[in-house]
Design a protein around this nucleic acid. Structure first.
Lengths: 401, 401
DNA sequence: TTATTAAGTCAAATGTCTTGACTTATTACT
DNA sequence: AGTAATAAGTCAAGACATTTGACTTAATAA
C-alpha cells in the first residue's frame, strides 16, 4: 500500500563538513610534506591565512599538531612550522592469519609502539576470539603504560584478514579460512573492546600501510601486489583505498591463469602457500620464515624453480595491473621473508612492455615495499587512522546511514 | 637557492563548495529517482527542508528543474514533485574512430537531439581536424535551430577516441591510431569551438553513457566491457568514472592472454578488428556492420568459430573483472552490431564461478548494455554533463590548479 | 466537525570562511 | 646605519549557506 520505494541519493553537506574537510586537509598536508608554516598551508590548500590560523590553533589545542622553532628564510617575518604530533592519536591493528594473530599499537604518524603475537588455537573462531580479545587487551594496556591518556586518543581497531569476504566458503577449500568467514567477528570485537572496528583484507591493509609510511606515501594511484600466504592487490585509487562493492576488490588470488592447457588460480602458483607445498613444508613451522629467507638468499635450487614460475606469474600480474589501473607505480610487498621478496623482484625483471613505459616517469614501474611480517598489522591499524584523519569524500557528507 | 620544493596538498573548501555540492546532490537525486518533492529531497540528502527549498528555487530559476502538478498521497499537504528539465543543459559529444567521426548533441537527461557522421580523410589529423570542426559546428547549429538559447546552456564538448593516450605510438602497430596521439587535438578543438573540451577513451565513454541512461544508471560500482574495433573496460568506481593516473585505466586490450604457449593481447582475439581479420573484411566497408549483424543473427559458420574463441576470452575477462573490481554488475556493451553482442552474451554463458556468486544478489552478474554505433558519442557528450552536474569530490574543493 | 499528519515558508540564529587593514620581524638596498 | 621591501601572522567586521523553531497550508482519518 505504502509506496516504500527507497529514495537513493548522496548526502548533502554543511558547515561541519567544510570544516571537517579542511582539518583533514591540513593534517594530510603535514603528513605528506612534513612540517609547514601557516602561510605554506594557506597557499597549498588555497584557504586564507586566517582560516588556516584558526584551524591550526584548534588542532594544536586538540594535541594533533605542534609548533617547531621559527625559521628565517629570507626577507619577512620568520615562519613557524607546525608538525604532526605522533602522540595525537593511536589505533590498534589486528592481523588474523592462518596460524598466527598479531596486534600492534600505532600512533598518528604510523610508528609501531607495541607489538604482540599469539598462535591461534585449532578450535576455530569461538575459542580463537578469546585469544584475540586478550591479545588486543594486552596491546592496549601496554600502550597505556607507555603513553598517558592513550585511551582517550584511540580512534579505533583495524582488523586485517585474508579475504574474500561474504562468500559461503565451501569449507573444503584449504585456501580459505571458511570458519572465520561465518563468525560474527566485527560484532564480537566491537562488543569486546568498545572500539570502532573496521575490516580489510590483508592486501588492502598492506596497501594502507604503504600509503601511510611506505612507498605509496603521498601517491594517488598505486597498486600494492601483496605476496603472503595468499596473494592479493591493495588498490590506492584517487588517493583512497578502493574496496569494491563488497570489500573484495583486489582479491586477485582467484584470477585464473591459463597454462599448460588448464586454468589455475594465481594463488596456487604464486603465494607462500604454493611455496610451502612446493617445499613440502609445514606452514605452522615457527622457523619456516627464517629457513625460507635463508634458502632464497642462498639461491638454493630447491626454491629457484618455484621462484622462476612465481616470478613469471607476477610479471604477468604486474603487466595486467598496469594495463587495467594505469597506476603511478606498482609496489611489491608481502609477509614473505625479505630475502624471498628480493629474489622475486630480481627474477621478475625485466618487466613486460606496457603502457606504463612512458617518457617522463619519475617513479619506477615496480618498487619494493615492506617485506615485514608486521606490515599487515600496521596496515590494519593505519585503517582507522586514515578514516579518522585523511581527507575523503565521505567525510564531508552528512552522516550517512 | 630558493627552496622551490612544491608543497603537495589537497585543496580546502568553503561555502561555495558546500553549496555547489548540495546543488549537484539534488540534481543527482532527481536523475536517479525521477521526480521528487522538496520534502523527499530533504530526507534523502539529509539536508533541511529550508535548504532544499532554497536550492530548488535557485535551480528552478536557472531552468534546471521544474515543478509538476501536486500529488496527494495520504494525510498532509500534497507534495509538489520536481523533475529535471531536459533543456536545462546540453553538451556535444564527439567520437573519433578509425574510419568515421560522429558527433551528437545531448541534453541534461541524456537524450540525443542531433546526430551527424562523417568519414575521416586519410590525410591524417591535420586535414581530419577540419572535418571534425565542421561536424561539430554543424551539430551545434542544428541544435541551435531546435532549441533557442542552446548555446548559453552548452556545458562542453566531450571527445571519445580509442586509447591508450600519451604513448609514443610505435607507428607500425595498426591497432593504434598513432598519428592522432601526437596531434594537439584538445588544443585545436578548444580553440576551434570555444568550448570546454574533455577527452576519454571509447570504453570510458561507453561506461559514462551506461551510467547516465543505461544499465549502470544509479550504480556506484560497475564495469562496462566494451567490444568495439578494440576492446576496453570503462570503470565506474565509487560512483565516478575512474581514469587512472594518465587516463588509461581500463585499457585492457593489451592485457596478455597465454594460449597455445604464446602470449597474445586480448585485443587481437576479442574485438571487431580481430573479427574483421577473421573474415578478411575491409573495416572501411560501409555495409560491414549490417553484414556482420546478419551473419551473427543467422549463426553463420563463418562467424561462429570466432564467436567461440572471443566468448571464451570474454568469459575469462569477466571473471577477471569480477575478481579484481568486485563490481555490482558487469555490462557488456559495444559499438559491435547488436546481433553480434547478443550472440556473444549467449556464447559467454555460463559464467565462470567467482566471488560475484553471492546470495542476495539483486543484479545479474552480466548484463547487456547499449550496442549502438552512437553510444560512444553519447557517452562522450555525457562526460561534460557529468562533470558539470554530478556530485564528486573534486567539485567541492576550491579551484584546483 | 475536529484532530492528525505532512509539505512547505518565514525570520532569526549559527557557524565557518573571507576581507582588508594592521602588527611584527626579518633581509635587501642605499 | 637607516630605510624600504617583503613576508608571516593577527584582528575585527562582514559575507554566506545551512540550521532552527515556529508558523501556515492543505490534505485525510476518525
Amino acid at each position: 500500500m505504502n509506496d516504500v520505494r527507497p529514495i537513493r541519493a548522496k548526502s548533502g553537506t554543511n558547515h561541519e563538513g567544510t570544516s571537517a574537510h579542511n582539518r583533514r586537509v591540513m593534517i594530510d598536508a603535514l603528513r605528506i610534506n612534513g612540517a609547514l608554516s601557516r602561510a605554506d598551508l594557506a597557499r597549498a590548500t588555497r584557504l586564507t591565512k586566517q582560516t588556516v590560523s584558526n584551524i591550526i590553533e584548534e588542532l594544536e589545542r586538540d594535541g594533533l599538531v605542534s609548533s617547531q622553532e621559527a625559521v628565517r628564510k629570507g626577507r619577512g617575518q620568520p615562519s613557524t612550522p607546525y608538525r604532526l604530533v605522533p602522540e595525537g592519536a593511536f589505533a590498534i591493528g589486528l592481523q588474523i592469519d592462518r596460524h598466527v594473530t598479531r596486534a600492534v599499537a600505532v600512533d598518528l604518524v604510523g610508528s609501531v609502539l607495541v607489538r604482540a603475537e599469539a598462535g591461534l588455537p585449532t578450535g576455530g573462531p569461538s575459542t580463537g576470539a578469546t585469544v584475540i580479545l586478550d591479545l588486543v587487551a594486552g596491546v592496549r594496556s601496554k600502550l597505556a603504560g607507555i603513553v598517558r591518556q592513550s585511551e582517550k586518543r584511540l580512534v579505533g581497531l583495524g582488523v586485517a584478514m585474508p579475504g574474500p569476504f561474504g562468500i559461503d566458503g565451501s569449507g573444503d577449500d584449504p585456501w580459505m579460512m571458511g570458519a572465520w568467514q561465518k563468525f560474527p567477528l566485527l560484532e564480537t570485537l566491537t562488543a569486546g573492546t568498545g572500539l570502532d572496528v573496521g575490516l580489510q583484507n590483508d592486501a588492502a591493509a598492506a596497501a594502507t600501510a604503504e600509503r601511510m609510511v611506505g612507498a605509496a606515501h603521498g601517491l594517488d594511484h598505486a597498486v600494492c601486489l601483496f605476496v603472503g600466504y595468499g596473494i592479493g592487490a591493495g588498490l590506492i585509487l584517487n588517493g583512497e583505498l578502493y574496496r569494491g562493492s563488497n570489500g573484495n576488490a583486489g582479491e586477485i588470488g582467484m584470477a585464473l591463469l591459463f597454462a599448460a592447457g588448464k586454468s589455475t588460480p594465481l594463488e596456487h602458483r604464486a603465494s607462500l602457500a604454493s611455496l610451502y607445498q612446493h617445499l613440502s613444508a609445514d606452514p605452522a613451522d615457527p622457523v619456516l620464515h627464517a629457513r625460507i629467507d635463508d634458502l632464497a638468499s642462498r639461491r638454493d635450487p630447491s626454491i629457484e624453480a618455484w621462484i622462476r614460475t612465481a616470478a613469471a606469474d607476477l610479471r604477468w600480474s604486474i603487466h595486467l595491473i598496469e594495463t587495467i589501473f594505469d597506476p603511478q607505480t606498482v609496489i611489491l610487498c608481502g609477509s614473505a621473508p625479505e630475502g624471498l621478496v628480493n629474489r622475486l623482484i630480481a627474477a621478475i625483471g625485466p618487466l613486460l612492455p606496457s603502457i606504463a613505459e612512458r617518457r617522463g616517469r619519475t617513479l619506477p614501474r615496480l618498487q619494493p615495499g615492506m617485506a615485514d611480517p608486521w606490515s599487515v598489522a600496521l596496515g590494519a591499524a593505519a585503517g582507522p587512522i586514515s578514516r579518522a584523519f585523511d581527507p575523503h569524500f565521505a567525510a564531508i557528507l552528512k552522516d550517512s546511514r
